[in-house]
Design a protein around this nucleic acid. Structure first.
Lengths: 200, 200, 200, 200
DNA sequence: GAATAAACGAGACGGTACGTCGCGTCTTTAC
DNA sequence: GTAAAGACGCGACGTACCGTCTCGTTTATTC
């Protein structure tokens, strides 16, 4: 994706800016995030940042896109309960990183103004959801849950409480949450709650 | 909190400003929200707004507090599944209102900078959760779910997916979501997934 | 011309900015003139300057317009030679002021970009020329020079060498220049060199 | 001054850059003059320009120096009036060229910042004045004007009105100006107005 | 005719100043 | 006595152009 050689000055600058942005996010959060400050932290001039990214939102967008490209190991223990428990723990671990927490929060704000940011955010979440949803696909293949379980819907139920706490209530993303949510989703999945035509 | 009589000029101005803010939020979203614009829409001078609220965030905070004060009818049909289904529908209805959607999104951003905004947001969500959680309390009283079910945790599972979609993926808060989520939570609750000491 | 009351804050700010500009011009000349520096010297914020003047050029333009409004005493001794000598001395005195020298130089540069600046500059010079030209009108009335002498043309001959030195050669605008130029112009005027139809 | 042979690439590039600068000056004037634009017009990279000239002002300085090196035919008709008339016409012709007009104007601005530019400008004007002043030397040799006439002073009187119009009032440098100024200066010179010790 | 030094092309970068936007404060006037 | 009107301080934004730097490529000279 990089138009310049990986070892060149451009690549180095790009990496430094993105690292500095993460650092700034971790320290001050999304509010208090400033292009000048990022430039300072990166040891780079402000104009350089504007030459490469249209916007602060653009920078955050690319940062998240970078994050999205990173592969996450999806648990595969042969047991849905255990898989979900571990998956929930992974999610909690990632979102506990202050940089990432601030980055996600920032993109929620950025999505208010920029469709690109909104698209990236959506893409990130859905991409992760898609990756994680294989635990349901596998469980269905094993016959642990109904074959017509919608894995994306099921993942929403697992992830929803995490973002609720991260973005709104500020409560901890701890092991208790992981345990409870994993159990709830596994139970519901087994009972067929995530089949396309819900029983009512 | 209001120091003036409800019918006076002050009260009228206050109402007009808050209405104008909601209108501006609905039209332009949180980005593109401007104090001058609100003042224009309200037919009021900017100074007047600052006399009454410390901040733009303060205004939003109070707006949300107002919203929180509005009573919501908590369903009480005697059936947990039905109660949850209706409750989910209510939540979806409220968050579908563009003003409220923008307001919540905006406060997520504001919470980045202002602890007051964060506290208000947290209070709003937890307040609503507390109100809604009585459906679990009643179900427990009826013996439909374990007596030691944590109602707040259960509500989190119901509400989480809604905010996930509102803030992150942008997918619709429709009837299908209500049905699925209600069923899942009811199932999990009956199975004891929201008891304090999760089975493991 | 001021739209605000003379004693108000606006008027005070305006005066301080213009004084600061003159000071900055005197110290650093037109090169090295900066809006930020003017703002600092004036104890005023940069935005305030931009609110009131479109441009640095605009500020200089108004400064010169102010200068143009100031009346200059035109000598009237009854003797053309003496009048011109004194007039030349006055011109030299004004243009020796470093602020004014820098201001004129700056407007020459500004006129490159801004038609307004060009018009103001032209207006200033022609206005001054018009005022000074009465010495020729009076001399003509006395019969000292031909009745059809063009006073503006004659003034150009007096003033030209001053701006030549000010803007181009940097040589001093001293008494010797005054004496020589006054004598030359007076001589030429008496000989009818500034009559519309030149003898050839 | 050129370190390379006249036919080489360097010489070609140098010529193209200087021509492009003149073209850019003629089109946009001194304001709106950009190194990038010159480079584009010259079909040359910006770096090349900076390799050869320290500065934009430096380029202009050299451009004017080039101009100054060009010989101008000084009229020598045996008649002071006629010589001056023709000389004035030549001056008017040169300064009417938009490139040269913009160049001179630009250097007035550049002289504000750069002493080199100021020196070049001064050198150019004084050089030209020196060359032109021979008409007075010759006239003095013929006995047409006093032997102790200061030729430089006399030339100032001739040239002054031209730059006054060029830089300040913008009025035309036409034949009428030439006629009038030539006559005036000739008259004054014959009357001894440009002798070192002015009569007073 | 290859080797080698000099100049050029391309493009990112540091830096200064610019001019703008929106927030929140303050003063002055009017109702 | 409260609100309108509007200027102001302030911080950050995003831009323009300057002059510098690096790296590869071309050109011209030299052996």
């Amino acid at each position: 994706m990089a138009v310049t050689r990986p070892g060149g000055r451009s690549a180095r600058v790009r990496a430094e800016v993105m690292a500095a942005t993460l650092r700034a996010l971790a320290e001050d959060g999304y509010g208090g995030l400033t292009v000048d400050r990022i430039a300072d932290l990166a040891g780079v001039n402000k104009t350089t940042i504007y030459r490469r990214w249209t916007d602060l939102d653009g920078l955050l967008t690319e940062l998240l896109a970078d994050l999205a490209a990173r592969a996450v190991p999806i648990p595969d223990t042969g047991d849905l309960d255990l898989d979900l428990h571990r998956l929930a723990g992974l999610i909690g671990g990632v979102l506990t990183d202050p940089s990432i927490a601030a980055l996600v929060t920032g993109l929620v704000a950025a999505a208010t103004r920029s469709p690109e940011a909104a698209a990236t955010l959506r893409g990130f979440i859905l991409g992760r959801a898609g990756a994680g949803s294989v635990v349901f696909t596998r469980a269905a293949a094993r016959g642990d849950i109904p074959a017509d379980t919608d894995p994306i819907h099921a993942i929403e139920a697992l992830v929803g409480p995490y973002y609720l706490r991260l973005l709104l209530t500020g409560e901890p993303l701890d092991a208790a949450l992981a345990a409870r949510t994993a159990t709830a989703v596994a139970t519901a999945a087994r009972a067929g709650a995530f089949r396309p035509a819900p029983s009512h």
